[in-house]
Computed example of a mutant assay.
Amino acid sequence: MSRICELTGKGRQVGNNVSHANNKTKRTFLPNLQNVTLISDALGKSVKLRVSTHGLRSVEHVGGLDNWLLKTRDDQLSLRARRLKREVRKKVAGTEAAA
C-alpha cells in the first residue's frame, strides 16, 4: 500500500535531519494518512479511502465527497477516485436529465 493520499495525491517528501553540529542525513516526511469512510450522496453509498488529513479537511470545506470529485482535475486523483468520479458524474447527469 503506497503512502499517497487517494484524493489529493499528497505523498512523501525527502529532506534532511540537521544536527547541532550541522551534519545532514537524509530522511522522509510522510503524510498523515487515515483510512476513512466517506459518504457519496449521489451514489447513495459509502466509500473507503486512504486520505490525508489535509485532504479530509478540503473535502469537508467544499461540501462533501461528490463536490470535491467534480471540482478536482483527473490527473490529481488516484485510479479508484477517478472511477468514483466517473460514477458520480454519470449519476448526476442522469438525475439532471430526468428533471
Rank of each mutant, 00 (worst) to 15 (best):
D75I: 10
S52A: 02
L69F: 08
D66K: 04
L69E: 01
E60V: 02
H54T: 07
V62H: 09
G55P: 00
R80T: 11
L77T: 05
L56E: 00
L77P: 08
G64W: 14
L79W: 10
N67E: 15
S78R: 07
L70P: 00
L70H: 10
N67M: 14
R73M: 13
K71H: 07
A81Y: 07
K71Y: 08
T53Q: 03
G63I: 06
G55L: 02
Q76L: 15
V59Y: 01
E60P: 00
L77E: 08
L56P: 00
L65P: 07
T72R: 07
H54N: 07
L70I: 15
R80I: 07
V59L: 06
S78W: 12
E60N: 13
G55K: 01
R73D: 11
G64S: 13
H54Q: 08
T72A: 04
G55C: 01
D74L: 13
S52D: 04
S58I: 09
L70G: 04
R73S: 13
L56C: 01
T53R: 09
G64L: 08
S52Y: 03
Q76C: 10
L79G: 04
T72Y: 12
V62S: 05
D74Y: 08
E60D: 07
R73A: 14
L69W: 12
T53D: 05
V62L: 12
T53M: 01
A81E: 02
S52G: 06
N67I: 15
H61T: 08
L79T: 13
V62N: 01
G55S: 01
L56F: 06
S52Q: 07
N67D: 15
D74M: 03
K71F: 11
H61S: 14
G64E: 14
L79S: 11
D66P: 04
K71A: 13
T53I: 05
D74F: 03
R57G: 14
R57T: 03
A81F: 07
L65H: 12
A81V: 06
E60A: 09
S58V: 10
L70C: 02
L79C: 09
L77Y: 05
S58Q: 10
V59E: 01
E60W: 01
S58W: 03
S78H: 10
S58F: 10
W68P: 00
L65V: 12
R73C: 10
L79Y: 13
L70Q: 15
G63A: 04
R80V: 06
S58T: 09
R73P: 15
S78N: 09
L70V: 15
L70D: 06
G63S: 08
L79V: 12
L77H: 04
G55R: 05
D66G: 03
K71E: 09
A81G: 01
S58M: 11
L69I: 03
L79P: 05
A81M: 06
H61M: 12
G55T: 00
V59D: 04
S78G: 07
D66N: 14
N67H: 14
L79D: 14
T53L: 01
S58C: 08
S52C: 03
H61P: 00
L65T: 05
L56M: 02
S52P: 06
L79A: 12
L77C: 08
G55N: 00
G63Q: 11
Q76E: 13
E60L: 02
G64F: 10
L77G: 04
N67A: 14
S58E: 11
G64C: 07
L69Y: 08
H54P: 00
S58Y: 11
